[in-house]
Design a binder for these strands. Structure first.
Lengths: 215, 215, 215, 215
DNA sequence: GATGAATGAGATTTCATTCAT
DNA sequence: TATGAATGAAATCTCATTCAT
């Protein structure tokens, strides 16, 4: 989740106005929240005229829809990609956790918007994008299912529950950073990737052996 | 999280109007979302006049604040209580997971409102109640810290990260139910309590032994 | 305008609630303005229950109507009385100016309310009490007319204009005190009575002679 | 006070909407009073959409503020201008009285609004514009002070009291017209200018000589 | 007389969206 | 493409008044 947006804008020396608006919207949505901001705030932040937002987007909703889908689809692609490779399950989950944490590292505002305004918004955008959101959970669930089939993961914890626990743990870490409840920084982000995989795969208990922390 | 509200209303054959409004607000917030509903929707749902909402609450915000604090404080009390008892860490975490899942079982609307409108709402009510939210995470963190000191939990996974992972896993299960992505029912709820503790404490991997699923 | 209200309340050791409400209303209207205050503010200030205001008065308007009429009728009575006596015109005008200034001295809040909410409120209470207001101006006009007939006052300045100028000058002094634009105090009030009569009768110019300031 | 508004709108064949709204507001405020009218009344009177009032003005208050300041500043400028010229005090006061009366003649609604809603509104707009209101009184007071220094005006009547009496007399004449208590018309207005100056400068008494009424 | 909960019409203000230029 | 004035539906909140006790 670290490439898309900046890559696109890097391609053009003069970013087009549409991109300008989307990038401005991320900052404004993150700062004020989707409901609390006005379309004029987005236009002001982007330095474009009010009506131009409506030239490129049919509505305020569509701006958020676009932002969400751009990112979420990159994530879905990555999960599929990871799943297709012949890697140990820990590496697969590690790759997913890394991707999400890196996404936050690269563009915390965008991830804040996605988490706060979409993935938990059961009455608005969460419903709209239920299909995409569900797909992510299911893809992760499939990874778990395979690991169970291979005997690496316990079969008594249903895959879809496990997938939810895994994803929920990551999202909660991001929530902690977003709310300022957890320390941030390059080192913290790296550590978080290891921690979440270690916790969910290895468990917090000491019974298991030979798990070394990174570095 | 299963006693307070209903207990109070059970004490009176004729529930007071204030309670009526709060209970109606839960249903309306859950159904439409805080932003999408009007104060008149709450009044209509409660069967009272418009202005009475403002007789008892200074604003629409205060209605949600009240609902959140009523419930959250019960949870904080329970966590403190659990922490004070001389129980194994698994039992403590199990008690917390049980409490939250039971809360959802008893009053799914209220828990939906709390999760959707407060604990993830970084720009509105989440900020307002940051202190209470943080406290819950910290209390769980302390339970983990003690388990680490006792040698039951690994010391290399920081307690506050572990606490976030644990809480995040539970909240994600509730989110799954709220979005209709996970099956619900008495049995599912019981199983979920076991699963989340098992996942976080024992880990998903098969290396550990002798963990029986409930029932 | 210095007797009525206090006289009434002095008659009873325990003032009746109706009086309590009226006196409280004066303070509240003066402090916040008629429109900006709520009926509950009056009740709170009076220390009585909300509904009691409506037991004694049909509406919020009626409270102000009552206050105004109580005072204004005393003033009308005084002007009539003064006019009936065989006094020089200066003494008559002096008596009227004295009465109004003393009224302010004794109960500035009430006079503030009367001036701010009634005598200049052309679209609300001013219209309601137009009859009483007009009568005051006409009574003063009659005093001027007589003075003209006696040859003491110039006949070329129409009596009703002169009456308006005289009354307007006094009301403006009160306005100055109400707005904090003129210094107040026993001495200032006494001086004001002399000044306004001297200005209107003798004029500001030096041509006339033998006019000594009081004290 | 006779130029500004109409001049501006005369410059454009199609008056801008902002001006349209201000002019409509004058009529509506004068007809119904500031408190009794709704913003939609202003919009309807102006023939524009509801929201346009808020496009140009932050609030209903700001509409009145704008109207008051536009006019009052013209008056302040005139008083300063008059004061700077080497005229006899009678001519200066005559110019001021003329200006105010002409303002009423030209736009009685606007002057009604200013007097009824601002200069006597001690708890609302009067306080907001206290600085500007005070300045007018003080400027007139300075004119009186100079006349006293020149020996034309009696030194025993304090200048600021005299200024208040003078201004109050004029405002009361306007109040009389506003309430329909005094006859109006070109001739009446001309006569009023003379009367008020004559009353305040020369006094009502006959002792002084050689004062001819106009025409 | 006295209380204050209950009512609901109505006000201001906001802001997504449209549209003429 | 680009602009921002113009629109008007809809929301929150206020508060005078009523009424059961």
């Amino acid at each position: 989740m670290s490439s898309g947006r900046s890559a696109i804008s890097r391609e053009k020396a003069v970013p087009d106005k549409r991109r300008l608006i989307l990038d401005a919207a991320v900052r404004v949505f993150a700062r004020q929240g989707f409901h609390a901001c006005r379309v004029s705030d987005i236009a002001d932040e982007a330095g474009v005229a009010y009506g131009l937002v409506y030239h490129y987007f049919a509505s305020k909703d569509e701006v958020l829809d676009t932002l969400f889908l751009e990112r979420w689809n990159v994530m879905l692609a990555l999960i599929r990609e990871v799943d297709a490779e012949p890697l140990p399950v820990r590496d697969k989950l590690r790759a997913i956790a890394s991707f999400i944490v890196d996404s936050y590292h690269h563009d915390p505002d965008l991830m804040k918007v996605i988490i706060v305004e979409v993935t938990r918004a059961a009455n608005s955008f969460g419903q709209t994008h239920l299909g995409e959101i569900r797909e992510a959970y299911e893809l992760i669930g499939e990874i778990v299912t395979k690991a169970q089939a291979e005997g690496v993961f316990r079969p008594d914890i249903e895959a879809r529950f496990a997938a939810m626990a895994f994803y929920g743990a990551i999202e909660q870490l991001l929530t902690g950073w977003i709310f300022g409840l957890l320390p941030q920084g390059e080192e913290q982000f790296e550590r978080a990737k290891w921690l979440v995989v270690e916790t969910v795969c290895g468990g917090l208990e000491t019974s298991a052996t030979g798990r070394a922390a990174p570095r």
